[in-house]
Amino acid sequence: MTPPVSAPVIHDVNTLPSGDNVNPYAFSVDVQGQWFLQKGKMIAYYGQLSFDGVGHGRFDRLLAGSFHSPMHAADWVVAEGSGKMLLADRSFDINSYDLDDGNLTIRSGNLLAYEPGLALKQSIIPGFLTLIGTGKFVAASNGPVIFAEPPIRVDPEALVGWADCPSPCHHYDHQYLRGVLGGVRRLTGLGGASGEEHQYEFVGAGTVLLQSSEQVMAARPTGATPGQQGVPRQRGGVGGLLDM
């Protein structure tokens, strides 16, 4: 006997959670004041909200405190007013994280929205953004997020972000690449690569966030960092560190 058709859950402005998931793919934010969000991630809202680019002159003071990523300015908007707002991104898994006087670095394409209590800064690693302060932010991942502790080596495409620990370094499987088989493959291209000759290595104390897929979320090319000595250059593309 098959079960009867179950009635879907119907939400309204009062039953929608505030600051929690509606389902694994949609997140409800209770906006009272201002929130930063990436363009196009709002799917619906109740109440009175307005959306303005961060370049809007009114936001000068807000930006001075909470937004320090001029290269990403074109992707971000400020939602202002009061109401409940639903966020979603290509039906990827959505999670919220609370930072308490902490710091977290995340791939720019994965970050959906954050509270102005946090300050968004560009990481020195191209394609990544660092959030510093106290507050809530919402991020997407392809598949649920896995939390891991350093020391750990991770696949570049599976990396979502990291908190508290020092920024990663590159790790190459030197022995394999120098060995006879690996060397021949590398020089001739015969036999192909396993695709796992290169990882990011994390050391120190902290948490590393991984997604259960190697699909990198599209981030818009953000132009180059200021041409200055000692500043790593970004050569465009979505991979961030991959391009270096």
Partner: peptide, 28 residues
């Protein structure tokens, strides 16, 4: 009767009532 509609990811059902308007992104 019953209808089956498809969505990209499970659909969220939102109620609209007098005094409780809803604004939706056309793409969603």
């Amino acid at each position: 009767g019953t209808a089956a509609i498809m969505s990209d990811g499970p659909a969220v059902v939102l109620r609209v009532a007098p005094g409780m308007p809803l604004t939706v992104d056309p793409g969603a």
